[in-house]
Design a protein around this nucleic acid. Sequence first.
DNA 1: TTTATTTGACCCTC
DNA 2: GAGGGTCAAATAAA
Length: 264
Amino acid sequence: MSYYEKIIATFENTLAILNYNNTISPLLRVGESSKHPPPPGRKTLARWTKQIRVSPGMGVEAPLDDGFSWRKYGQKDILGAKFPRGYYRCSHRNVQGCLATKQVQRSDEDPSIFEITYRGNHTCTLASNLPSPLHPRESREQLVNLREGLKLLTHNLDASDQTSFASFLTSTSTSTIKAEEKQDFLSPALQTFGSPATSGTTHFSVSPTSVNDFGFGDHQYLATSGSHAVSASPVNSPTVGSDFPFDNFQFDAHNLTFDDSKFF
DNA sequence: TTTATTTGACCCTC
DNA sequence: GAGGGTCAAATAAA
């Protein structure tokens, strides 16, 4: 896994934890694996799997608010499985032609764990899926492009949140990242997240040198907490298979801690 | 009335 | 032929 893959994988999990810690607490991410990409020439939608653990008190039938709007279109009893598998597609399929789908399967071994298999990338507009409790004029968003490979987009983070996020990025990059990479990675992020939010969008494009060794699936990452939202998505979308441990950090909007020593 | 969910049937792949 | 995935009519909920 390349340096940038680690960054995005780390960030994705962080977003998930931020999302669930702040909206459906308590909920723990227990693991994630990405399926290997299909053989060359075979036209198959990107596919990856996550496992989500829910607390006993949660509504277990619909525990998976991942920021997108899904519509259930089927349910099947699966051979050898205790629980049926639910089939969901993006609610914007008809309007915007978004082909993203997901399958939700409850674990036999631990009913508090749901395995979610995502297929295809969302092509619907991200904004239409974001919660918008604020009036549009009050909404603030900022966008960072990192090496033209990774976009970070924030919605309605106040100055405190942005400072926290800058700290997160700093801690993410303090262990083994090479000095020149660290400089490239951190400078624009700190410029953006370390300053008070302003209206409009800030766009950075940095060091377009490592695009080719930067590959992720057709992922789009989203976390929400009340009126706050953070999303990230790869600009390029070459698919890559990866396995990656995700147990080593905690994150929330105001108190960010992150142990990345095992990642770099 | 509109929108979402359920569920049996059908289709496709292995 | 078996099993997984999707369709679509029926039903429920808002």
